[in-house]
Every structure is written in C-alpha cells, then in structure tokens.
Design a protein around this nucleic acid. Structure first.
Lengths: 231, 231
DNA sequence: CTATTTTGCCTCACTTTTGCCTCATTTTTA
DNA sequence: TAAAAATGAGGCAAAAGTGAGGCAAAATAG
C-alpha cells in the first residue's frame, strides 16, 4: 500500500515542521516547501494527494497556487492563513480550496480536517458502487437477487446472461472486448480462443428482443460489444 | 433539474431561518428542524443532499444524529456549534462530519463551505471516469474505446483506420513514411512492397471528408503522409 | 439416478474489412 | 515536352469476423 502524499507550503519553516510532524505521526508521507513556485513545480513533477497551502508566500501566493493547480487537477487543497476576515475565507473557499483554517490553529484540528476530507473522497468513491439495483432505459437489474425486470415482467436470465448484462450495463456505451469479458466474467486470465461470449450475447439479444426492451447490444467489429439505448 | 435539498437542524429558530434564507438565495431547497429526532425521521423518509446540524439540541444531540446518519448514508454533514474547544471540533470531525463551524459564524462563509463540499463531490465524480482522449482540430479520438468523434457524431472507423489516424495524430505535422507505418501499425519489420497504407489513407480521407472534419492527411511526395489542419 | 436446463462448440451462411489490381492523373526527371 | 515515377480512385475478391441453428457435454434440480 502506497502512502498518501501531502505537500505543505508555508514560508514559516517552523509551521511547516510542526504540521509535518503531526501528519507523519498519522502515517502520511509529507514534503514541505516554502514558496508557491517550488510547490507548483514539485506537483507538476509528482502529483500529491493533498496540498496544504499558506496564503502569504514569496514569489507566488497561495491563491495563485490554488488556481493554477485547479486548472488541471482535482487534488484536495486546504488553505491556511493569518487572514481571518470573512472576505478572505470566502475568497479562498470559492477559488477551489476544500477548507480554510486561520492561524493560529490547532495541529490536531488540522489533522482531523485532513482525515475528514479523505473520508469524504472515500465515501463518494464507495457509495457509487453500493447500489444493489441499477436501471438503464426500461430495464432494471437487481444485483442481489440476480433478477432482471422489464416493467413488471421479469426477464428470465441465466446466471451467465445476468453477469454479462450487468457488466455491460456498468460499462454502458463503452465498447468491451471479448478478452475483457472472458477475464471479468469467466475469469480466464489468458486470451482463450473461444466464442462463448458470442453465445451469451446471442441469447441475451434474443431475450431482450422478446421483451421489447429499449436496450440493445451492439457489435464493435473486430473487438467486442457495446451496450446502448435503442434509437 | 431537481434542486439540491439541504436539511438544517438547530433548536434556535432564528438561526435556522437566517441560514435557510441565505441558502435559498443560492438556489437550494431547504427544510428546517429543531431537534435531532425530527431531522432523522425526515431523512429516513426523504434523503437530503446535505445536513447542517447543531450539536446542542433537545431529544437527540447533533453527535448522535451524525453517527446515526453515517451508518447508512454518505450524505455530507456540516456541524455547527457554540462549543469551540479543540476536543469538540475534533470529536465532531472524527465522528463523520465534513466540516465544523463555531457560532457565531458568518452565513456567507457557511454558504462558501457548503459550495466547497458540493464542489469536492463533483470533482471526485468527474475525475473518476476520465477518458483518455486526444483532440486535434475538431476531431476527438478516444484510445480506450477506439472511437472517433466529430462533434457529437461518431465517425465510424475500422480498427486499421483508427490505428493509423491515431498514429498520425500523435505525430501531427511530422511526415511519416510508409515504411514507418507498416512497421508501427502492421508490425512488418522489413520493407514490404505493399500499398496497403495508401488504401487505409484513402478510406480515412473519404470518411474525414464526409464528416467535414477540419483535418486532412497530406501526401509527402515520394515519402509518405502527414497530418495537418485544413486551411 | 433421471430429467431438465444451461453452456460451450460446431458448422455454415452472411457481412465487413482489407489488400491488390488496373487505369487515370499528377509530379518529377531527363 | 516527353518519359518515368508516384499517387489516387474505383472495383473486386480473399480474408477475417460475426450470427443463427443445432447438438451434446456439463451443471442443476427433482
């Protein structure tokens, strides 16, 4: 497991070191910088997982760093500043930062906020895969019960057919190669010369057609298949 | 477009109303509650997109609400509290909230933080299904899906045509010899006497022309081909 | 164990892609 | 200017890929 990497930029060396020591204690990998220019260059060379940036820095200020990074990355950013007026905070938050803390601050609170942001990212990542039913066009699949529905009518699918259709639905509009299907659904590791995929697709098409589903499996010539809405 | 729904729970009715008015002004749909019990029931009945919760409330306190909601939902939560000690903040953030603001606070700052959290969620959403596309002039190639686009219209390319066009685009403005193409795309090592390259180029030109793409494959006499913008 | 369903393979007809051929046209060279 | 070399366009057919029906092995149910 690779360590989570955090960059800190503050022209006060002491502050950098204090923050760094707390974050390292939590298991993060930390690099410190003391002006806007150098953290930008470092980020370009190796992207970090989070940036903690002071506003007032020589060369390039924190706002500019924030804006520059946001142009090409969605990395979370915490702004740290001695400026504690409302307009300052709003400007920082609006510019693209995820949090704004005013100096002096508690390092423990900073750590808690860092964790909170990473937790938010994880929550969003996992919640998108947690739904047990998924709907595309007029077809509903229930991953738990392995049932497919067209309106109130159940479409009787075998387990292979269900798995394949679920995989295609999860990759809607993206062409999926036969090799990928064999790998992900059959579990073959190497390229096996088989047209088993074509057979399942053939039977799926038949059943979807019989039920008049507004959903079709298109052929991507010389490659594989793609799920699309019927037009 | 459905409005984003935010629930607020605070036993001070005035605070609720102030926050609500600011958020409504920003276009959010807002419901207010005055104890922990009722916001939990409401959430169970209809999930909101964000919760703003006071710590000190009758019946069920904010911490408990936060913990209860987190058990089954990843909805973002902002805790608002008069308690401004470090342990309070850390407890709130650790328990699962996304932000912790101490009273009295600026409503404008709250709005900025609300927006910041939604932006974070959007950033994570969009970055998770980023595509590896290359664009030249008005033509977009997606190497992953092997598709070429002219605006919203897909240009149907065979796999040979796609590979050749991709190679030319990656070497835009540089003349590429037939031998190089045979080597890199067909995989022939020696100089094979074939005009297969010319055939694929011929068909590519036809299709690009049919779609009115601002992109053309120029002939470099006695050598090969070169991709260029149409002028 | 038997009956039924599921699944993979085979064959064959059919479709799409790809390379080659010919010939006209363009560019270079003598 | 004429001959030679290279390229472009259209047609064609081999090669490659796919779909449908039938069949039997394998898995599942009774």
């Amino acid at each position: 497991m690779k360590k989570t990497l955090i960059y800190i930029a503050d022209d006060e060396v002491n502050i950098c070191n204090i923050i760094k020591s707390f974050l390292v204690k939590e298991g993060y990998e930390v690099e410190t910088f003391h002006d806007g220019q150098s953290i930008l260059e470092a980020f370009e060379h190796r992207a970090a997982d989070m940036l903690i940036i002071d506003i007032m820095m020589p060369m390039v200020d924190g706002y500019s760093v924030c804006a520059a990074v946001r142009k090409q990355s969605s990395v979370p950013i915490i702004i740290v500043s001695a400026k504690d007026t409302e307009p300052d905070k709003i400007a920082g938050l609006t510019l693209g930062s995820d949090d704004y803390m005013t100096k002096p601050f508690s390092p423990m609170e900073l750590v808690a906020r860092v964790k909170s942001i990473f937790r938010r990212i994880e929550l969003d990542k996992s919640s998108s895969h947690r739904t047990s039913t998924i709907q595309v066009a007029d077809v509903v699949l229930d991953a738990e019960t392995k049932q497919a529905w067209h309106g109130n009518l159940e479409i009787p699918l075998t387990s292979m057919e269900f798995s394949l259709l679920l995989y295609l639905i999860n990759n809607k509009d993206r062409p999926v190669s036969r090799g990928e299907l064999l790998d992900k659904i059959w579990g073959f590791e190497n390229e096996v010369e088989t047209r088993a995929t074509d057979d399942v697709v053939k039977r799926l098409r038949k059943k979807l057609g019989d039920f008049g589903a507004q959903l079709k499996i298109e052929t991507v010539w010389g490659f594989g298949f793609k799920l699309a809405n019927k037009n």
